[in-house]
């Protein structure tokens, strides 16, 4: 595997879920993880320790030598937020397909019907997309969409504003209008562990302002949404994400996905990507 793929941080477990040592896959290779005296560890197949970071309720590791720290989400530290470990879902698709689906709003009325979207409110207005060179991240801002029930805490339909951020090839952070606190952003993330190039484990995590819902209600809401996404992700052909134009047809609503694919190509991140039209 090339450094362009190995030298990233990857989520491999929810910290609260680590009890006995266990095996998992990262980029097609076996790794082992566990916790001793409150400190999490990860080892490769030969028993060599791998670097670890504990952040956002999850354990992160890297099979290479990451040349930068794991990204941060400063907004998530503000007081009053509830941090929600959603759990994990394994999906038979490329890790990049899972991230790209998370960046897409146009599917809301059809896949998350009457929750995140509903006909006839299907139009996607122009929004801003940029690869921020100084931080090497993809950002989409001023994304607006009408949602019947934007969050567990939403009382009725509202036009929600979104910002999407891709701080690492298999991670995305969504900043979203917060129904009970206008002016603040709810934070919903998608951390994707590439088990192989066509199989991934998805760890959503949230930092929300919601004083009313129970933890299990917030978890159930997000799990329902992701189960609906999974029915799509396991039925896209090919399973890998095509990076070359020609295999799939983007429109203006897909500007975030176009920028994401271009950025993956630029940084040489080809794990889970299809480079030549089959």
């Amino acid at each position: 595997m090339s450094a362009a793929i190995d030298n990233h941080w990857y989520p491999v477990a929810m910290i609260s879920g680590i009890d006995a040592p266990r095996e998992t896959l990262l980029l097609g290779k076996k790794i082992k993880l566990g916790r001793e005296d409150g400190i999490c560890w990860v080892k490769d197949a030969s028993g060599t320790p791998l670097p670890t970071v504990e952040r956002f309720g999850h354990l992160w590791t890297s099979p290479g030598q990451p040349n930068r720290d794991l990204f941060t989400i400063p907004e998530a530290d503000s007081p009053g937020r509830r941090l929600v470990d959603v759990g994990s879902v394994k999906v038979k698709c490329s890790p990049l397909r899972a991230v790209e689906n998370f960046l897409d709003i146009a599917h809301f009325p059809f896949v998350h019907t009457d929750i995140l979207g509903a006909e006839p409110h299907t139009e996607v207005d122009r929004y801003d997309v940029k690869i921020r060179e100084e931080v090497d991240e993809v950002w989409a801002t001023k994304v607006k969409f009408f949602q019947p029930q934007a969050a567990k805490s939403a009382a009725g339909g509202i036009t929600t504003e979104y910002m999407y951020r891709v701080p690492a090839p298999t991670c995305s952070v969504l900043y979203k209008t917060c129904p009970p606190r206008p002016g603040e952003w709810d934070i919903i993330t998608l951390f994707v562990q590439p088990l192989t190039d066509e199989w991934c484990e998805v760890w959503p995590w949230m930092a929300l302002y919601d004083d009313d819902s129970t933890m299990s209600e917030m978890v159930s809401f997000q799990q329902l949404i992701f189960m609906q996404d999974r029915s799509i992700l396991e039925n896209q052909l090919p399973r890998k994400l095509p990076l070359d134009p020609g295999m799939e047809v983007p429109t203006q609503a897909d500007m975030t996905s176009v920028a994401y694919r271009r950025w993956l190509k630029k940084i040489g991140y080809t794990y889970g990507a299809q480079l030549v039209a089959a």
């Binding site: 799509i232 039925n235 896209q236 052909l237 090919p238 095509p242 295999m247 799939e248 047809v249 983007p250 429109t251």
Partner: peptide, 10 residues
């Protein structure tokens, strides 16, 4: 063909 040309969905 069982594939939408947009994003490859069946």
């Amino acid at each position: 063909s069982d594939r939408c040309p947009h994003r490859g969905m069946r």
